[in-house]
Design a protein around this nucleic acid. Sequence first.
DNA 1: CTGCTTTTGAAATTCATTTTCATTTGATGT
DNA 2: ACATCAAATGAAAATGAATTTCAAAAGCAG
Lengths: 143, 143
Amino acid sequence: MILEKKKAFSTFAVSKGLRSTRQRDIILDFFLSTHQHVSVEELYLKIKATHPGIGNATVYRTLKLFVEAGLAREILLHDGQTRYEHIMAGEHHDHLVCTGCNAIIEFEDETIEKLQNEIATRHGFMIRSHKLEIYGLCVNCRK
Amino acid sequence: MILEKKKAFSTFAVSKGLRSTRQRDIILDFFLSTHQHVSVEELYLKIKATHPGIGNATVYRTLKLFVEAGLAREILLHDGQTRYEHIMAGEHHDHLVCTGCNAIIEFEDETIEKLQNEIATRHGFMIRSHKLEIYGLCVNCRK
DNA sequence: CTGCTTTTGAAATTCATTTTCATTTGATGT
DNA sequence: ACATCAAATGAAAATGAATTTCAAAAGCAG
C-alpha cells in the first residue's frame, strides 16, 4: 500500500514535470507513516527531528502536492490547523470531534453507510464521497 | 422566527449574566438578516456601513456568543475564513451536495441520527451537533 | 560538465483571529 | 437620579497558520 502510493506520486510527478527530490521523498515517507490526521506543523516537527535541514514551507508545499496527486485530503476541524489524512481506496471513516480538547475519535459504521446509499438512491444521487463529523465532548472533557 | 431567536439570545444572555448592549443587538439583527453563510469579515463590513463605530473584534466576539447560545454554527469551507450559519429548530444538517452543479439537497434520517447517538454513547461522547455531507452527482448531472 | 529550471530554506509577509488595555457602558444598590 | 463596579467595547498590538520572496542549491537534459 505504501509502495502503491509512492508509485502513484511518482507517476503524478512525472506527468506534471515535477522533479524528484530528497525532501519530497522524506516528506512522503513520513506522511505515509502517520496513521491519523496530521497537521502540517506536527508533520514538520516529526521530520525536523531527524532531518533538521527541511523547512516548514517545503512541508506545506509538498502536502499540497499530495492532495493534487490524490494521496491526501485536507480536513478542517475547529482547531485552526489544516490537517491532512490519507485517501484510501474504498475507505470511509467518520469522526467524533471533541470540542473540549480537540481529540478526534475515528469510527466506521456500515449501517450508516448503507443508509446513505439508500438516501442517495432515493434522490437519484450518485455518491462519490462523504463527510460525517459529530461534535461534542469526549469522556474526559465531560468531567 | 427572528423574534424567537432574539428571545433565545436574550434568555441565554440572562442565564450567563451577560449584559444587553447596543452592539450585540445590532450584530444580532444583521446576523439574522443574512440568509447564507456569512464570514465575520462580511458581516462586519455590512454593519460598519451603517454603524461605523462597531469594531471587528466585537463582531468576532459576538458571533462566538451566538454559537454558545445555540443560534449559529461555525462552518469551515476551504477559503480561509470561518463562516457562520443559522441553526434552525429541529433542523438537521444533512446535505447531498452535487459536485457538478453545486445543488444542495437536504435530507433527514432518523435512523442515522439514532446510530450516531449509539456510536457516541459507545465512546462516552456527548453529542452537541453534527454534520453529514454526501458528495456526488445529482440526477441532472449524471446525464 | 554546462546551462537552464525547478526546488529549497530562511526570512519576510500576509491575513484571519485573538488578546490587551484603557475607556465606556450597563446593571445594581442606595 | 447617583455611585459603584464588573462587563463590554474599540483600537491597536499580538499571535499564529499559511504563503510568498529570493538567493542559493539541486535535478535533469543535452
